[in-house]
Amino acid sequence: MIYVKDLYKNFGKTPVLSGINQHFKKGEVTVIIGPSGSGKSTLLRCLNLLEAPTSGSIIFDGQNITDKKADINKIRQRMGMVFQQFNLFPHNNVINNIMLAPVHVKRMPQQDIYKRGLELLSRVGLSSKEKDYPASLSGGQKQRIAIARALAMDPEVMLFDEPTSALDPEMVGEVLDVIKNLIKEGMTMVIVTHEMGFAREVGDRILFMDRGTILEEGTPEEVFSNPKHQRTIEFLSKVL
């Protein structure tokens, strides 16, 4: 579904991604792990061009999206993204957070969008919060709304950048449960996380990133139980 070819990204003169080649398959859950600053977020953000690659290409559903002629807004509608800091729209209540993009970007009938919004709210277990403002929600609730907001665009792939890192420990579970349910429904996902237990449980494929490259990749079994590289072993010994 998404091919990444020879992806390089520099911030100024600093190389952050140095030659990434990957294929994210339809229906597959890829989990990216690695030390802080290794380029995990940058890689994820290159996939929907929140960061412009310095060189290389990203092919989404047969279309080179790094091409200048590609309609990036159209493409982003097909890729949902969930951020560490939630980034809910504070001036909109919960249901309007979810409906804003579908109403103004997809221009479907308002009534259909509203019905879909309510359906998504119940799916993330927050039906009672329809009219609440983000400021009155807990971190876990905010993140579940952020997931519902992304799903409202009916994306074909979901990108998660440390969706639970900003949460109090007791709220991590409720967010991971929502993500697990999505996986059951067959959603294609790329997840950056520091939750190793979760990575191991849901990942079809684990990518270990270090200093801008993917140093090691494989099934959870391969990466967690039989890591090949010294860097992977060191990293895992610190976080497990």
Binding site: N73, R76, A150
Partner: peptide, 23 residues
């Protein structure tokens, strides 16, 4: 305004000007 607001809006497929106006 937090940088994440523009990113969230763009990630949903809004154009820059629409994100500016709505978010």
């Amino acid at each position: 305004v937090d940088k994440g607001q523009m990113e969230a809006a763009r990630s949903l497929g809004m154009s820059r000007s629409l994100a500016m106006r709505l978010v």
